[in-house]
């Protein structure tokens, strides 16, 4: 599947480096994604210079370039901003280009790579929630699949100040609201809350995420812990630096959550170390987005190929 990366900043460039390797997100086979171009708006950007060095088409003409080359493009990874994505999403759809939206624009259905990877593979536009959402929704889902009900889930994401870009900084409410919604819609919690903290420590800290899940009376705690460990492995399949920093623990309350009083909570302490493809390893928050984007793009490509094969048969 022929794809373009729109946005030549940190995220777009890191994704380019991942696709340049030629292997798929799990590292076990060839990627079905063929990178056609990296498209930005700043001709002097480091990302575009790298693209040229690697032999990719590098354009600074923005969304217009993609629409002018619609016949050569099947999929766009949009790593610009919610504003830019909203302004052009319909044009991509009209041109028959599938959009994987890495911005918080949230036009299309939400996809968390470890949870509902193939649910929306036929959609014209899918949204990747937030970095914190990609990191924590899988664990909320892991608890949810091991319990009868999950009244309340909460995530706390701490990222190094250096890895929080201006988009996040100018609209931090968008991060918490979108992430919180994903914990319910995809994670399966009845109620939820998301918190983000920026930490300026030097050297920069690795991305940390903590998931708290309220466990109702009668929960099989061993099953919850097993499911959490299993999910760690499922995410590691495409984000090798995703790990439980400490063993998950079940603490005793009671806790008066917004979803009702629960006797226990699960505490899941996560760390995400980036692969260091373009960004330094501490920027696990950006790495988990680009790794998930590649995996989602590949799922769409496989689906598209299967559709075409079906049509030809």
């Amino acid at each position: 599947m022929r794809c373009v990366i729109l946005g030549s900043g940190n995220i777009g460039t890191d994704l380019m480096m991942k696709l340049h390797k030629g292997t798929d997100a799990s590292g076990s086979g060839a990627t079905p994604l063929e990178l056609v171009a990296l498209v930005g708006i700043d001709p002097a950007s480091d990302g575009l210079a790298r693209a040229r060095r690697l032999g990719f088409e590098a354009s600074h003409e923005g969304p217009g370039w993609i629409l002018d080359h619609a016949d050569e493009v099947d999929l766009v990874f949009d790593a610009t901003s919610a504003y830019v994505h909203k302004a052009h999403a319909q044009e991509y759809a009209d041109a028959g280009i599938v959009a994987v939206d890495l911005t918080p624009a949230a036009i299309g259905p939400k996809v968390i790579a470890a949870v509902n990877l193939t649910e929306h593979v036929g959609a014209p536009n899918v949204n990747m929630v937030t970095c914190g959402g990609q990191a924590t929704t899988p664990m909320v889902y892991a608890v949810c699949r091991a319990v009868d009900s999950l009244p309340y889930a909460e995530m706390v994401s701490t990222v190094s100040s250096r890895s929080a870009g201006p988009g996040t900084r100018q609209n931090i409410d968008e991060f918490t609201k979108t992430t919180s919604t994903a914990l319910r819609e995809i994670g399966g919690a009845d109620t939820s809350k998301a918190i983000i903290i920026l930490n300026p420590a030097e050297p920069p800290i690795m991305m940390r995420n903590t998931v708290f899940a309220g466990l109702p009376e009668g929960t099989d705690h061993a099953a919850v812990l097993d499911s959490i460990h299993q999910m760690e492995a499922e995410v590691q399949a495409y984000v090798p630096g995703y790990r439980l920093k400490n063993r998950p623990v079940i603490e005793t309350g009671p806790y008066s959550t917004p979803g009702g009083v629960v006797p226990h909570r699960a505490v899941i302490l996560l760390e995400v170390e980036g692969a260091g493809d373009y960004l330094p390893p501490y920027a696990g928050n950006l790495d988990i987005m680009t790794a998930a984007a590649q995996r989602i793009g590949e799922a769409i490509a496989h689906h598209s190929a299967a559709q075409k094969a079906g049509a030809q048969a």
Partner: peptide, 11 residues
């Protein structure tokens, strides 16, 4: 750690 990182206490 900065204000708000209470989760790191458990860690």
């Amino acid at each position: 750690v900065v204000g708000g990182q209470e989760d790191m206490i458990i860690d």
